[in-house]
């Protein structure tokens, strides 16, 4: 039953994609909840968000074990091997994203008793929104093997970096103007840094999708900003359904 074997091999690949999608969904929710917990000062939400990181870790181990079994049993070559390696890397980046988001949830827990400055929270909220958009687009691109969308995410990270720089500057100014806020602002500074790092891992995933689809590694540096700053506020993917 040759046919049967092929089908189950396909099913194994489908299973890898399913687990990865599930990890992605958990990571998206963890990041959204972590920020919501921070801005609403909701310790319960913070705790439940932080706890969900365990599910992401568990899924990553599952993906790893499955991939290893597939490599051992099927001895895949070319495209199939590329697929398996890409999934492993994507799962690794999602696991890191989960860790970074959990870190924000923990800070939210630590800060739940404090009143925090509204403008600083607005900046973090904006960063979270942009990071979530990037993450959503990259996970959609992964599910649909959409190289063009992945490339768009790859370019889009520059916007998040720019935003991070601005938020960072604002937080420093705030601390200098009112040294009593240093303790609080330090937490927010780290939260911003975590979101910026989440953006980097999202970019890694975009690179992997591109590799998976085209077989070519993206290597040229991302475009730099000169003194004319241009910013694309992509509120919705251009090809949104």
């Amino acid at each position: 039953m040759n046919n049967h074997i092929v089908t189950s091999y396909d099913a194994e690949f489908a299973e890898l994609d399913r687990a990865t999608a599930e990890m992605g969904g958990l990571a998206e929710k963890l990041l959204a909840d972590a920020f919501a917990a921070l801005s609403r000062r909701d310790p319960r939400l913070a705790a439940s968000a932080a706890a969900s990181d365990g599910d992401i870790d568990r899924l990553e181990r599952q993906v790893q074990e499955r991939a290893i079994t597939m490599i051992a049993r099927r001895q895949p070559v070319a495209n199939d091997l590329r697929h398996i390696f890409s999934v492993l890397k994507v799962a690794g980046d999602l696991e890191r994203i989960g860790d970074l988001a959990k870190n924000i949830a923990k800070r939210a827990l630590a800060l739940s008793g404090e009143t925090h400055p509204k403008p600083l929270i607005n900046g973090l909220g904006h960063m979270t929104e942009l990071a979530l958009r990037q993450l959503k687009d990259v996970l959609d691109a992964y599910a649909n093997r959409d190289g063009a969308k992945a490339l768009m995410v790859w370019h889009g990270d520059a916007g998040l970096d720019l935003l991070y720089n601005s938020v960072f500057r604002e937080q420093l100014t705030y601390m200098m103007e009112d040294p009593r806020t240093i303790g609080l602002c330090t937490h927010l500074l780290f939260a911003a840094k975590n979101i910026e790092r989440i953006g980097d891992h999202t970019t890694n995933i975009a690179e992997n999708i591109n590799y998976l689809v085209t077989g070519v590694v993206l290597s040229d540096p991302r475009p730099k900003n000169d003194d004319t700053t241009s910013l694309l506020l992509r509120h919705r993917p251009m090809d949104a359904a």
């Binding site: 489908a14 994609d17 399913r18 999608a21 599930e22 992605g24 969904g25 958990l26 998206e28 929710k29 969900s52 599910d55 996970l139 599910a143 649909n144 359904a241």
Partner: peptide, 22 residues
């Protein structure tokens, strides 16, 4: 269709990956 574009024939998580739904 608008909630689940190109989802037919594939696992639901590839069309909607929200943990609550899954």
């Amino acid at each position: 269709a608008s909630f689940f574009p190109n989802g037919i024939g594939r696992h639901i998580s590839l069309a909607n990956r929200s943990p609550e739904l899954l």
